[in-house]
Computed example of a mutant assay.
Amino acid sequence: MRTFARVLLAAIAGVAVVFAPTAAAAPVSGISAQLPFPLTLQPDGVRAPAAALAEANTGLIVWSRQPDTRLPIASIAKVMTAVVVLESGDLERPVTVSRGAIDSSAAYGGSTAGLAPGEVLTARQLLYAMMLPSGCDAAYALADAFGPGREAFVAKMNATAQRLGMPNTHFTDPSGLPVPDDYSTYSTPAELVRLGRHAMANPVFREIVRAPVHHQPAGPANHHHVWENTNGLLRDYAGTTGIKTGSTDAAGTCLLFEAARGGQRLIGVVLNSSPHDLDAAAADAARIMDWGFLPILGAGPAG
């Protein structure tokens, strides 16, 4: 576990602190009296066995727990699916939702965006359908179109992971469902932070994942849809800007998150906070960010 968080953030804030991180958890003599807040080396009450928090502007990981352990990531995999689609640059491309996309989602009890076979939506619209309600049906529709075919699309996901410097990440399904098994799609907390920073650098992605709800009007070839974001932090944690929840039996409840307060942006991830309770993952994320935000940087308006 690396626990040099608040001291490094203090350095970023311009506070004169010199600290060589060690495994010791004891307070550093003489430092706490110089800082405008109590010095603690790690957040309290975090249930997730694997997690990481980074300063989003630089990518500096300031606290972590099992940062390099490979674990299933559930629907956080959809972040990479979105990255592959966004990097195609063809967001107005019409995509027909196939019966196979619906059936594949249903076969594993995946969350859906309520799409119907034969509906035609643009790639941009399907990104909302995938990222907000975590629609596995939308993920499969996008993969079928932009692979073309799922096998080719998953190959693009893995090639992108390698390009981004994520050697401990592997994808076998564009939705994050346990295909072919519970542990075939995996990553690490440190590499998910890297993926999250890359995705959040795209303004279209940021616009999508910060939306609490998206209303998709009915059109000539699509039904009316209302897609609500599964990320409860957007509602409950001031300054949240994204990004993605996940949950399967093996992965438990997971959350890749970002928030900004004043001049400070934090990005992080928690994996397996609870077997089934997404609120537990949100609570873990909130505890970590409460610890990570510096009062001297976070006193400005949220966001």
Rank of each mutant, 00 (worst) to 15 (best):
N168C: 06
G109R: 13
F146D: 05
L121R: 13
Y183K: 13
A141K: 08
V120T: 15
E119D: 06
A107D: 13
M131C: 04
S184L: 09
Y128R: 02
A155M: 11
G110F: 02
A129R: 03
A123D: 03
P167C: 12
N158Q: 02
A129D: 10
V154F: 06
A161P: 04
I102N: 04
G147A: 08
T96D: 01
G176V: 06
A101Y: 03
V179G: 00
L121E: 08
F171I: 10
G135N: 06
D144P: 00
P167Y: 06
D137H: 12
F146K: 10
A161Q: 01
Y128M: 07
L164C: 05
L121W: 14
I102Y: 12
A143K: 05
S104N: 13
R163Y: 02
F171L: 06
P148S: 13
E119L: 07
D181A: 13
A113M: 14
G135K: 06
L126A: 06
T172Q: 12
A139T: 08
V97D: 05
L127H: 09
L142T: 02
M130R: 02
A152D: 11
F153V: 12
A152R: 14
L115S: 10
Y140C: 02
A129Q: 00
A106R: 15
D181T: 01
A138I: 10
G135R: 02
G149K: 08
G176R: 01
A138E: 03
A143H: 01
N158I: 08
T169H: 02
I102S: 00
L132I: 10
T169I: 10
A116H: 15
R99Y: 11
F146V: 13
A141G: 12
R150P: 02
T160G: 01
Y108E: 13
S134W: 04
D181K: 00
D137S: 11
D182M: 08
P148L: 07
M157H: 07
Q125M: 09
V97S: 03
G100W: 04
G114Q: 09
A113K: 14
N168M: 03
T112R: 13
P117C: 04
L127E: 00
G114C: 11
L164S: 03
D144W: 01
P178S: 08
P180M: 12
E151L: 13
S184Q: 11
P148Y: 00
G176W: 07
R150A: 05
A106E: 14
H170A: 12
P117S: 13
Y128T: 07
L164A: 06
Y183L: 14
L177I: 09
L126T: 05
M131R: 00
N158D: 12
